[in-house]
Nucleic acid binder design. Sequence first.
RNA 1: GGCGGCGUAGCUCAGCUGGUUAGAGCAUGGGAUUCAUAAGCCCAGGGUCGUUGGUUCGAAUCCAACCGCCGCUACCA
Length: 667
Amino acid sequence: MTIPRKIIVTSALPYANGPIHIGHLVEYIQTDIWVRFQKLCGNQCLYFCADDTHGTPVMISARAAGIKPEELIERVHKEHKTVFDSFFVEFDNYYTTHSDENRQFSELFFKRLNEAGSIVKRTVEQAWCENCKMFLPDRYIRGTCPRCKAEDQYGDSCEVCGATYQTTDLLNPRCAACGSTPSRRKSEHYFFKLADFEKQLKKLIADEYTQKTVANKLDEWFKAGLKDWDISRDGPYFGFKIPGEENKFFYVWLDAPIGYMASAKNYCDTHGLDFERLWNSDEYELYHFIGKDIMYFHALFWPAMLIGAGFKTADKLFIHGFLTVNGEKMSKSRGTFIRADTWRKHLDPETLRYYYAGKLTGGIEDIDLSVDDFINRTNSNLVGKFANLASRSGPMLTKKLDSKIGRLDEGGKKLLNKLTAAKTQIVDDYENLNFASVVRTITALADEANRYVEQNQPWVTIKDDTETTRTTLTAVLNTVRVLTIYLKPILPKYAEKVEKFLNVGELKFEDVETVLENHTIGKFERLFNRIDKKQVNAMIEESKESKAPQVRTQTEPFAPECTIDDFAKIDMRIAKITKAEPVEGADKLLRLQLDLGGIEKNVFAGIAQAYKPDELVGKIVVCAANLKPRKMKFGLSEGMILAAGAGGKDIFILTADAGARPGQRVS
RNA sequence: GGCGGCGUAGCUCAGCUGGUUAGAGCAUGGGAUUCAUAAGCCCAGGGUCGUUGGUUCGAAUCCAACCGCCGCUACCA
């Protein structure tokens, strides 16, 4: 290992279909702490990430919002970046998978894998929605479970009885978007022959590519046999088109991990670095931080792709568990599905960083955010131990001793030695992602320092012995300095405040070895605020109100995109209702006579339960004027008037503002 | 169903390859202080280490079964 080390780090790419929540943040905070630690040690460490932008969900969401996917992902990208900034997650490059670099790499991977014979074509049969004009992934089909008859289940498995099945087995299948019954349609797909790489993958894992527990899990998958991986999707699909194909795209999971490289490449190009050296040589170490939910992709598919395409694989995967809140899965109804921006509105982001740090061990166990524990820990450690140490020493020195730090005596040196002696342990724990241990060590040292203050009673000595007091406070402020260095990867903002207050430059890990003597400090600034349970409750209350997005999903999804030409085919005109009468033998229909500027049309409208004939006469409405006339039981209907609503009494006719004249075209 | 992980004081967790009376932080009770964001310091109480067997001179630590919780079960992201 050369010194300084050169390290590339990635976090999993967040999906561009929704906001960042505190569960996501476990990973970004964990990674960021590690990256900051490396940088503070003087290593060159680059942290790359990006939005994962492709796939069906993004496409559907964009449709539902009535915008282009490109617009959606751009908006989400900004939101994500803002959140990361506010939590001090400092990427060297936060890019997007919808980039030229990523397209080029994706095509390169495909080409190389294809040439190496690692890709095969095979016909698969899938559900097709005629109305939405698209193939439906499992998640977009709903129906009745063939085993337990539970209704409204996904196309692959039942959430009630846990059965797994094919979408064809589902009773009453419906398209989740439009509700129509899907048909079956055959299509040719590309498959990546994962099994070809079994030997290399096994070797990789034997070489400690992952934690031990993960290796066990992977072993299970090896025993089950590695299967081919479907890497193409038929259009419409938001993603990269497969070269040489008209309507086939790379599956989002193919280009997502390639996004790590694209982000790195983009950084290299804008910073004058050689990508080939940075990404593909032994000069740089490479680590991926991921959650255990995407182990399969990062421990099997991704390294296999890299090997097959002639790239080096990562040195290690750092896998973490999920977040639970108060011991349970995050829940919208309980208000524990807390978005990052909501947290920030109510609480200091660094308190979350500190809490997570105190829980993270480098293992894959889930970590729990217990609200009471969180409040206690924040108040007791951040305020009671660290901030208190500074605030019981700094202001006294400023007020009574001209802000001047003096020299350490034997007692002070002994205390400081205790703190610096912990450096090896702390560095080791940081390196091994055992941040919980780091925090335990640091808090114990802070206890030590607080005890020192107690023993030397500067508030007593200040009365008649200023220089002894100065010596005591010198020691205490030096402990503040060292503790701050240790905490800096976890609490960057806090460290910045302390640096300002101590009137020193940017502290690094090696500064632990030196002491601050004969130095004038700056003005003390409040470092942390005590948390009141009310703040947390308010945050949870607000998170419960996340009914807004649910309303959005209740809105009927938009029909497939149409062009302005399609739209222009329908000739909509302003019409005046000149006559309205009930239709004998029909209780829903009214016969309307419309004036379209001199031209009369006879229209039957199914609005009898919502409107009385009398109240309609004279109304200015909108009429689809070129609709093919339809012969009905009661006569010929020559058009259609526009209305909204669910039907029955719930119908609302569209009218025009005053000034619109019969016959005018609506556009 | 199969597989994996977890189950240690009120809470959150540490306990590496088995070895004297099982640890930490927080919370709780008591005490002495008052520089400090009612923070800090000292002392104390509190656990049959999920259950039952087994291996061993000796197990929270290894093995088996069972109970409980969680997750994975690949073309969902």
